[in-house]
Computed example of a mutant assay.
Amino acid sequence: MSSPSDDKSPPAPARPKRGWLHTTVIAVLVLGGLAFVAGFAGFVSQLRGTEIAPAHKADGIVVLTGGSSRISDATELLVAGYGKRLLISGVHPSIGARDISRLLPEGRSYFRCCVDLDRSAVNTRSNAEQARLWAHERGFKSLIVVTSNYHMPRALVELSHAMPDIELIPFAVVGDQWREEPWWSSGSTLRLVLSEYVKYLAAKLRVHLADLGIDLGFDAPETPVDLNPPRRPATAQAN
């Protein structure tokens, strides 16, 4: 006669619980989302809503093409004596100095003596490389950087990485649409700022990896973006 304990079957092996994995994934996603939002808030806080004159003069001025008023603002800085020479980086190969000078009569005489055109840059990274070559060739130790306010953070990341030995003084160009309404109230402006933030993060990551000796080796051209309707023929092929 068997005892009651003999009738009990051995306990089944415990199955691994997967609840912790689900919780971990959710926690990672939440923390990642919070980090993205916090980083975006910090990025937006860098974007100026008004144009502020450079703190002081520099050896040269470099403007990264792509916005309708970047070149005119950079030319005004040159005429005002903020720099000895101006580099327009990212000019479309079909555009010549005369084409640009005709659109900017106030600085036409300066195009004959003090303006250089770079037609090889196709994105912000190559803008930075061409600006570095130009500055070193001229022996410049300081540059005023002219580009749109939404593009300035990424431009400074690339430029400072390309030439850490040169002082960079930002001059952020503010588009008319940016002045007229809050950036978050316009769908197109909001998409532009979000897109630029993602590109900014990618640039920061690439530069950090490059400092560690890791080159991603991917450098795609960029499509020009402008917040305003075109006021003059396009001169840009980058940014």
Rank of each mutant, 00 (worst) to 15 (best):
P221E: 01
F43W: 04
S109R: 12
V157E: 06
P54E: 10
C114Y: 05
V207L: 03
R112D: 15
R70S: 07
R108L: 09
W178V: 10
R119L: 08
H92M: 07
A74Q: 07
M152I: 01
H92W: 09
S188Y: 11
L168K: 09
S72Q: 12
R112L: 12
H92F: 12
D226T: 00
L21I: 12
I100F: 09
L192N: 02
I100T: 04
F140Y: 15
G66Y: 00
S2R: 15
S126Q: 15
T23P: 05
A121Q: 04
S126V: 03
V145L: 09
Y110L: 15
N127A: 06
S5W: 12
S9D: 15
R85F: 06
S126W: 07
S68G: 11
I52L: 01
V28F: 11
L21Y: 10
R125Y: 14
S45G: 11
R85H: 13
R112S: 14
D219G: 10
Y150C: 04
L64K: 01
S9W: 09
P230Y: 05
V79C: 08
A14V: 11
A135T: 08
Y197V: 00
I100Y: 06
L47D: 02
A12S: 10
S142D: 02
V63W: 04
R125F: 13
F218L: 15
N228G: 10
D226P: 00
Y110Q: 11
R179W: 01
T75L: 12
G213N: 02
A38H: 12
Y150S: 07
R18K: 14
D176V: 08
Y150D: 03
R206V: 13
R15F: 10
L156C: 03
V157P: 01
E137T: 12
D116R: 08
G33P: 03
L133T: 13
G39N: 06
R125G: 13
S5N: 12
I71W: 01
N239P: 02
E181F: 10
A172L: 00
F140E: 10
C114W: 06
D211I: 03
Q177S: 14
V63G: 06
S9G: 09
D6R: 10
L77V: 05
G217F: 05
Y82T: 06
F111K: 02
R125H: 13
Q46K: 11
L168Y: 01
P105M: 02
I95H: 04
I214K: 07
I88C: 05
L209H: 05
P230D: 02
